[in-house]
């Protein structure tokens, strides 16, 4: 699975890997950023000059010598657990410390990358996880996406991926959304009627249409709504009016085609 972020946004790639319960590594070039996945969840990240160990030293208050001793013991023990879990079990580390490190290692960089300019990506499935660089924690991609897109300030790279102002939205989720939506997202969710264009919603809200497009993109990214292009002509289509075909006809046609 590969492509360019100019063709398909990172938000979409992350959603698909989550949906596909992917295990493996997503690599972004040229930044050589690796995002590790297990069963559809993000479990760790690595890049040149950026790893769990470096975060522990630069932001976690762990000295290089202590880390070296711990790592040597981890390797000698031949542990099959992620390094973070091992630290909790052997050295009495607190989970909240790991949570903070995991946030710095995975959640924050992913949110930042959502607005990244052109990059090539490739997902390689079934790669052995780099356990020595993992905390043992994981993140749901859709929750990270929603938070990241809310925080995104520069939408230029996603401009071509936004739903058209002339399109409407249709709901893709039955019942109450599984995420905590903010006021604007709720409001737009209520407009997912398949009839009202984003431009009309912007007019009703008295905001720029770009704002509505961005909120719509967030809801689309987490699978709550889909974009519905409205017909260019005034007339909307009703039910198809083609003549009914008999069962015998369909059977004969299928048989005859198979003999071609």
């Amino acid at each position: 699975m590969q492509g360019r972020l100019s063709e398909i946004p990172l938000a979409e790639v992350l959603k698909l890997l989550g949906q596909g319960q992917a295990t493996g590594v997503l690599e972004l070039q040229p930044m050589r950023y690796q995002l590790w996945w297990q069963a559809g969840k993000m479990v760790g990240a690595l890049a040149p000059g950026f790893s769990l160990h470096q975060l522990m030293m630069s932001q976690g208050g762990v000295s290089a010598s202590v880390l070296q001793v711990a790592m040597r013991a981890y390797v000698v023990a031949g542990s099959k657990s992620p390094f973070g879990v091992w630290l909790v079990e052997r050295y009495g580390w607190q989970w909240r410390e790991l949570q903070w490190l995991f946030h710095q290692q995975v959640v924050r960089p992913v949110c930042r990358l959502l607005g990244a300019a052109e990059a090539r990506f490739e997902f390689r499935p079934r790669q052995a996880l780099p356990l020595a660089h993992l905390t043992g924690l994981s993140a749901e991609p859709l929750e990270v996406l929603l938070a990241g897109l809310r925080a995104l300030r520069d939408w230029r790279v996603l401009f071509d991926q936004l739903p058209e102002p002339a399109s409407a939205l249709v709901s893709r989720y039955q019942g109450r959304p599984p995420y905590r939506l903010n006021h604007q997202e709720w409001h737009l969710w209520e407009y997912a009627d398949g009839e009202t264009s984003l431009a009309s919603i912007a007019q009703a809200w008295q905001v720029e249409v770009l704002t509505v497009q961005q909120v719509a993109f967030r809801l689309m990214s987490v699978g709550l709504v889909a974009e519905l292009p409205l017909l260019a002509t005034a007339k909307q289509l009703g039910a198809a009016s083609a003549s009914e075909l008999t069962g015998d006809f369909l059977e004969s046609l299928a048989q005859s085609l198979q003999q071609l």
Binding site: P229, T233, A240, S241
Partner: peptide, 14 residues
């Protein structure tokens, strides 16, 4: 472009 051509095609399709 979802225009009249789509209308014609869809309306008579099985």
């Amino acid at each position: 472009r979802f225009d009249f051509m789509w209308e014609i095609l869809i309306e008579h399709a099985h």
